[in-house]
Write a protein that binds this DNA or RNA. Structure first.
Lengths: 204, 204
DNA sequence: GGTCGGCGGTGACAAATGTCACCGGTGCCC
DNA sequence: GGGCACCGGTGACATTTGTCACCGCCGACC
């Protein structure tokens, strides 16, 4: 395999994306074949340029990195996907691995590390930042049922129960039961603290 | 002035900081004399290297960009300060200008723009991203009194009123009055929605 | 001096919320 | 078939909360 590694770079922050592209261009065996500033754009560029490795920012307009990764898995199975994140909460990592992401790292790594990881992933390997991995493991799985998670998510903006019930097409009593149960499982004093705790663990 | 512009770069994300340093190094008239990964480190490096321009990320461990900017203003008045932010909420901009920041821009600008803005700021000019400026102006000032803001901040983690009252050394009744007043001013249905709205406007 | 806004407080009341017990239905697994 | 967990719901109850009126005390401003 003497071809250069074809890389797709997706990040909504031009400054970072441009800088990254410049740095990766310094590596002899890497070529940035496409750049994107949003989720949908990343998908389009991937389809057009068929990169070997896609480096996706977690937070992007339109579709976030995980959604793009899930799509890419179906549309371009041979393309390896890596997620780069600013300040990553655990939970994202787990979801990322579930959609077939091969690399997951914070932006605190150095550029030369990034290049090395791209090569590793290209060769079929995996890389997960040790610190994020440790956090994810210690955080564990969400104790909430799917429905509890849904309702808690609807409660996230501080809406009163009546509104949540309407949006969830549930009885207000049921909503309160779910919220009470969720708050109990999370050790929160009320649903609002529960939202915060779930957010911190990446369960929301 | 044929000296090169001495730049301090502070960002907790190595990847970005390194990439930025590499890009700025390509400019003939700019020199990155120091890098920092945290607020306190930024202050130390600034004191040691006395840069002409400090480029600070808004969110950093220890002290955030605004706090560093405020300190620098006293300790190194001749050093111009610029703030770079990922996804900036309005309100930060206003506070930034109040502590004497000369440039305020999102990370969506290009590297060449950044270099140009560094030169502008170095020459005594100012630069504020037009989009952020528009948001800040339309957002306007906080309608909350200082005390209301304090109490709302204590309510931000979802604590019950009794706990807020204790932490604020206030009577529970007074706390409820402040929260009610704040929610009214912000058009929120309850204090939790009020917290969210205040956050979105950068008033918290 | 008077007015006004912010601060801190009290008391009372209505509404929202949290909590518990309990119901039926479903699907899964042993 | 019997457990068991999840879903959706009802009703009752105590607590928390939001809301309002009203109090005094400052300090600023006219």
């Amino acid at each position: 395999m003497n071809d250069r590694v074809r890389v797709l770079l997706a990040d909504d922050e031009h400054l970072i994306r441009g800088a990254l592209a410049a740095l990766l261009a310094l590596e002899d065996d890497l070529t940035v074949v496409a750049e994107a500033a949003s989720g949908p754009e990343a998908l389009a560029m991937a389809a057009a340029h068929r990169p070997d490795v896609a480096v996706l920012d977690l937070q992007m307009p339109g579709l976030d990195g995980l959604e793009v990764a899930a799509e890419l898995r179906h549309r371009l199975p041979e393309c390896r996907v890596m997620i780069v994140t600013g300040h990553g909460r655990p939970g994202y990592l787990k979801r990322a691995l579930q959609v077939g992401v091969r690399g997951f790292l914070p932006k605190t790594v150095s550029a030369s590390d990034l290049a090395g990881i791209i090569r590793t992933v290209r060769a079929g390997g995996r890389y997960v930042d040790p610190e994020l991995a440790a956090e994810a493991i210690s955080a564990g799985d969400s104790p909430l049922t799917p429905r509890e998670t849904d309702v808690l998510e609807l409660a996230a903006d501080g809406s009163p129960v009546a509104e949540i019930a309407e949006r969830a097409a549930l009885s207000p009593g049921t909503v309160r039961n779910y919220l009470s149960s969720a708050a109990g499982k999370l050790g929160a004093e009320n649903r609002h603290a529960a939202v915060r705790i779930a957010r911190e663990h990446g369960w929301l």
